Simulated scan of single mutants.
Amino acid sequence: MNSIEYLIKFSDVKYKPIKLPQHSHLSEHLTVTNSPVLFGCRTGICGTCIVAIKGKISPPQADEKELLEILAPDNPQARLACQIDLTSDIEISEI
């Protein structure tokens, strides 16, 4: 059985797109050498990994949504990269 992979692109062109398996947690795969995303706590409470996402992913859970309302109240594309369940190709840009 073939595993589904999705493409993660970055708006910062110095980082090459990468492919990850469906339902990957970005915090386990993205590093300072392969992406512009920085991670702090990796649990969704610090806000270090806030990014803008283009692509179809599930909506944020209540805890993430609460933090996003504080950190990026008027940005519907804002997400915490550590909380994303990868279910489609996405593009990540810094906020």
Rank of each mutant, 00 (worst) to 15 (best):
H25F: 12
H25E: 07
H25S: 08
L26F: 05
L26T: 00
L26D: 06
L26W: 03
L26Q: 03
L26Y: 04
S27I: 01
S27T: 00
S27G: 12
S27Q: 09
S27H: 07
E28D: 15
E28F: 05
E28S: 08
H29I: 00
H29P: 00
L30Q: 02
L30M: 08
L30F: 06
L30Y: 05
L30S: 03
L30K: 00
T31S: 14
V32W: 04
V32D: 13
T33Q: 15
T33H: 14
T33W: 05
N34R: 01
S35W: 02
S35L: 01
S35C: 06
S35I: 04
S35F: 02
P36Q: 09
V37S: 05
V37K: 06
F39K: 02
G40H: 04
C41H: 03
C41L: 01
C41M: 03
R42I: 02
R42C: 06
T43K: 12
T43W: 07
G44A: 10
G44C: 09
G44I: 04
I45F: 06
I45L: 09
I45Y: 05
I45Q: 09
G47T: 04
T48K: 07
T48P: 06
T48I: 09
C49N: 08
C49D: 15
I50H: 07
I50E: 05
I50L: 14
V51E: 03
V51A: 06
A52Q: 14
A52M: 07
I53D: 07
I53V: 14
K54E: 15
K54A: 10
K56D: 13
K56Y: 03
K56L: 06
K56S: 12
K56I: 01
K56W: 01
K56G: 02
I57H: 00
I57N: 01
S58T: 10
S58I: 07
S58P: 08
S58F: 08
P59Y: 10
P59G: 10
P59W: 13
P59Q: 14
P59C: 10
P59R: 12
P59S: 14
P60E: 04
P60S: 07
P60R: 05
P60D: 02
Q61L: 12
Q61E: 15
Q61S: 08
A62R: 12
A62Q: 13
A62F: 11
A62G: 07
A62M: 12
D63P: 09
D63G: 06
E64L: 13
E64C: 10
K65G: 09
K65M: 09
K65W: 09
E66T: 07
E66L: 14
L67G: 06
L67Y: 11
L67D: 11
L67R: 12
L68S: 08
L68H: 09
L68G: 07
L68F: 10
L68T: 05
E69F: 04
E69A: 15
E69R: 11
E69N: 15
E69V: 00
E69T: 05
E69M: 09
I70A: 14
I70Y: 15
I70D: 15
I70K: 15
I70S: 14
L71M: 15
L71W: 11
L71T: 03
L71P: 01
L71H: 09
L71I: 06
L71V: 03
A72S: 14
A72I: 06
A72D: 08
P73M: 02
P73W: 04
P73D: 08
D74F: 02
D74W: 00
D74Q: 10
D74S: 08
D74N: 13
N75K: 09
N75P: 03
N75H: 06
